[in-house]
Write a protein that binds this DNA or RNA. Structure first.
Ligand SMILES: [Zn+2]
Ligand SMILES: [Zn+2]
Ligand SMILES: [Zn+2]
Ligand SMILES: [Zn+2]
Lengths: 148, 148
DNA sequence: TTCGGGATGTTATACTATTACGGCTAAGTA
DNA sequence: TACTTAGCCGTAATAGTATAACATCCCGAA
């Protein structure tokens, strides 16, 4: 048994919160709180008000099962490969997908950069925008679609 | 004359937009759009609706005179020392101040980390939270204030 | 002069997030 | 058992952030 795998974390939350996680995990793009709220499947199991969604999201964030994409006000599932270090959220402007890329070394580098100006680093949030690998290889198609 | 110093950029925008910049620059903490909108001094020169503020902010963002702190929905003046590279926005949980710390080297490092998964990097946004130098040296006071 | 684009003013609306309050239930304890 | 407390959940209201849509004005090009 792993230290704190996804399953053991999910075991701690209510079925409804678990359901929220499943929706986020199965989505290929980040979901906003109101995307979740308006989802028929979540409506069906009793989510009626924003508060309920935000409560579930808070639990999942605290357990580090999901990340908030601050620049999109939306949430993505954690890739679960960076339990201790930070990650980079790479947002594709073309397809909208967000990759959660582990970046263990980066925290140390950032600490060096900020130096004594900011000795008490607690949370690190890195987001980048651009074009993902898939969309790059499909660039000709994208171009074609753009000019048409 | 510098390449594109603050003054030459400010020369391109309207007096009202310039005024918005001045308010952001003179604030020691980040300001939200509605903080600006509700400011008597900006009201006095004709800002009455959110749109006006957001238009001014967009111009300033485009000129890189200010940054948006995504995790706070607020805006800070750029330190103007990283014309080409990214910077780190360091948010102090204690005093609320945000430092704009140039981090030229970091873009290259991030590119290495994301590798081919994300070849088309365009924008890089790094925010961190913690305690700034000033607040760290005043830690004893902070503690005293906390327990009282 | 006439046209067009860009900046500005104004209203309305959409989107995101939190507060407040009340009920229910599980767990501890006298 | 009866009482208490704390956490989870439901519900309603509200606060906070951002954009859409449309009207007007001004200035420079043709
Ligand atoms: Zn992650
Ligand atoms: Zn893509
Ligand atoms: Zn800057
Ligand atoms: Zn501080």
């Amino acid at each position: 048994m792993q230290e704190t795998p996804k399953e053991s974390k999910l075991a701690k939350v209510s079925p409804k919160t678990r359901k929220v996680f499943e929706f986020i995990e199965s989505s290929k793009s980040p979901l906003g709180a109101y995307d979740l709220l308006n989802d028929q499947n979540l409506r069906a199991i009793g989510f009626k008000a924003p508060t309920q969604i935000y409560r579930a999201l808070k639990q999942l964030l605290d357990l580090r099962l999901i990340h908030k994409v601050e620049s999109l006000n939306a949430f993505v599932a954690c890739c679960k490969e960076h339990e201790k270090g930070p990650s980079i959220l790479a947002i594709c402007d073309n397809c909208g997908q967000v990759q959660d890329i582990p970046a263990e070394d980066l925290a140390a580098q950032v600490k060096r950069e900020v130096g004594k100006k900011f000795p008490g680093l607690k949370e690190l949030n890195i987001e980048l925008k651009g074009v993902c690998e898939d969309c790059t290889s499909e660039d000709s198609e994208v171009q074609a679609a753009t000019v048409s």
